[in-house]
Design a binder for these strands. Structure first.
Lengths: 156, 156
DNA sequence: TAAGATTGATGGTTCAATCTTC
DNA sequence: GAAGATTGAACCATCAATCTTA
C-alpha cells in the first residue's frame, strides 16, 4: 500500500472538521443541560478542581486552556457572580490573582462530569475497539503536539 | 497487550477535547485573518461552492452542517448584507428558500481555503505518517458516525 | 516599565416565540 | 395544521484600549 491519495486526505480532513464540530456541540449542549453552564466555563471549573488547593492564577488558566486572558477575566467574573469561584489576590506576581473553586463550584463539576462521561465520552471511545483506541491515543497526542506548536494557535 | 487502562482512556479523552479546542481556534483565527469571516460562516460558503448550481436550501444547509435553522437564518442575513450570498425563493417546499453563492462569495472561498490548507490542514495531517494517516481515516469516520447518531447531537 | 488584569464594544450562537405559506 | 423561516433577547468570545501594581 502506498501513501493515502489526495482524495483520502480530503475525506479525512472533512471527517476531522466534522468530528470537531459535533463533539463541541455535544459537550456544549450537555453542560448547558446538566449544569446550566457553558462548556468553556465548565473547563475552567474542571481545571480548578484538579489543581492542588483548588486554586489557579488567572494567567495560568489562560496558558493551560489556551484561552485569551480577557476571556478568563470575563468568565471568572460570571462564575464569581454565580458563587462557583472566588477571586483572591496572591502575593508574588506583579498583579497576580487566582481563582478558587467554592463548594458550590465543586458540586457543579460533579453534576456535569458524570453525565458527560456516561453520555459522551464512553459511547464515543466505545465506538473504537482496543487496537483502534491505542492507535487513536498515539495519533491524538501527535495532533495536539502539532496544534500546540503552530504559530498563533496559543494565547493571543 | 490487554485493553487500554482507565488512565489511558482519560489521557485520550483529554487529548481529544484539547485537539478539538485547538483546531477550532486555529480555523477561526485563520478565516478571520484571511477572509474577515467567521469559520462558521465560511463553512456555509464552502458548502454552497461545492453544490451543483452553487445553491442550497436553508433547510439543507442546516441539516448538512448540523447547524440550527435559526443560526442559518441569521448567518445568511449577514452574508447577504456582505454580498457573498443571495436569497432566492424556490418553488416546491412549503416556504422554501435557497442561498446562492455570488461571485464575491466564490472569491472569498478562494481567499480563505488556500491558506487554510497550507497552514492548518497540511501541517496537521503531515504530522502523521502514512500508516497513522490511514488508521486515522478509519477512526475519524467511526467517531463521526458515532457522534451523528447520538441523540441531541443533530439539529435542535 | 512591563506583567497581569479589566473593560466596553462588536459579532456569533442559542433559545423561545412568532410569522408565512402550502 | 405543519414545514420552513424569521426575529429579538441573552449569553459567550474576541479585540483593542486601558488600568494597576511590583
Amino acid at each position: 500500500m502506498g501513501a493515502p491519495s489526495d482524495r483520502d486526505r480530503t475525506a479525512i480532513w472533512r471527517d476531522l472538521v466534522m468530528a470537531t464540530h459535533l463533539l463541541d456541540t455535544a459537550l456544549e449542549r450537555q453542560s448547558q443541560r446538566d449544569g446550566q453552564i457553558s462548556h468553556g466555563h465548565f473547563k475552567i471549573l474542571v481545571l480548578l478542581a484538579e489543581a492542588p488547593g483548588r486554586a489557579v492564577s488567572l494567567k495560568s488558566i489562560a496558558d493551560t486552556l489556551r484561552f485569551s486572558i480577557s476571556r478568563i477575566s470575563h468568565a471568572v467574573s460570571v462564575l464569581e457572580r454565580e458563587g462557583l469561584v472566588e477571586r483572591r489576590a496572591v502575593q508574588g506576581g506583579r498583579r497576580a490573582f487566582e481563582a478558587l473553586l467554592t463548594a458550590d463550584g465543586r458540586d457543579k463539576v460533579r453534576d456535569v462530569i458524570g453525565p458527560q462521561r456516561r453520555e459522551i465520552r464512553d459511547p464515543l471511545l466505545g465506538a473504537l475497539d482496543d487496537d483502534d483506541l491505542r492507535d487513536f491515543g498515539r495519533i491524538a497526542a501527535r495532533l495536539v503536539a502539532q496544534l500546540e506548536e503552530q504559530p498563533g494557535a496559543g494565547t493571543p
